[in-house]
Amino acid sequence: MLSGWPPPVLDPAGPFAGPVTVVAWVLFVMGAVVLAVVLVALGVALFGPRKWKRRVGGERLVWMGGLAFPVVVLTALLIYGLSVTARVSDAPRDGEMRVRVTGEMWWWRVAYLDDQGRETVQDANEVHIPVGRPVVIELESADVIHSLWVPRLGGKTDMIPGRRNFMRIQADAPGVYAGQCAEYCGGPHALMGFVVVAHAEADFAAWQAKQAAPAAPSALPGAGVFSASGCGACHTIRGTEANGLAGPDLTHVGSRQTLGAGILPNNQGTMAGWIADSQGIKPGNRMPSYPVLTGRELRDLAGYLDSLK
């Protein structure tokens, strides 16, 4: 299959994207029909036989084509659009699973909320959800305006400093759904990706339990490199001394799908590359490059982080 086909917007994976895809197809058909009508009228006007031209060349065409026709089409579309809008947007209800995603320059801070709205598990750059259940995402921003968009699961909603927005997502099948920041947020906005990972209900519970646990004590040499290089000033690894808050929580970084906010696959090699040259990969991002680390240190560090499953 051609990569990128079908386009994610036309390939919905949940009930908040599905109706919108239907809307999209209705609109494309409408557009094609109207364009055909205009082109036929224009063709007749330009090249048609005199008799046809006379029928088209009067104020009646303006009334019929310019007023009556659009009014009928648009009235139908308006009512249809309003009903779909009402259907796919609904205020959050009690008892729904909630995840808070905070946009930061240029990554996503993720926190799972309990019933009282308190943050429980911290994560970054990916949201794990159970399939078949709507999940409410609380959208906030720590700095500038961002916008969270996972096309196969639904439309986008902005993250605006000083405000809290909501959106719902739901995936009907397990899988990884890619998304990206849609609101220009300066610098490497182009490289601010995101994934949603949908698990079957049982797998999700297992993931949650694992994620809630702190990191196991590690004897790997990379753990020493981590603390010696000052990584803990910006990053937290629960269960260790590292408790920095500026960057993503790394307690289970080895289990993530991606690195650098949705831009690199996650393995030891990319991890080492990211640490050594994060500014070359994603210019302007807040993580400094560490060219001072030796090859061996890098390998150790990457191995340690990769072990944090």
Binding site: L67, L74, T75, L78, I79, L82, S83, T85, A86
Partner: peptide, 17 residues
């Protein structure tokens, strides 16, 4: 006035949803 009336009717439609 005709166009305005159409606009007003459309503008009223959201009240029903």
């Amino acid at each position: 006035a005709l166009v305005a009336a159409i606009g007003i009717i459309w503008q009223t439609a959201p009240l029903a949803f």
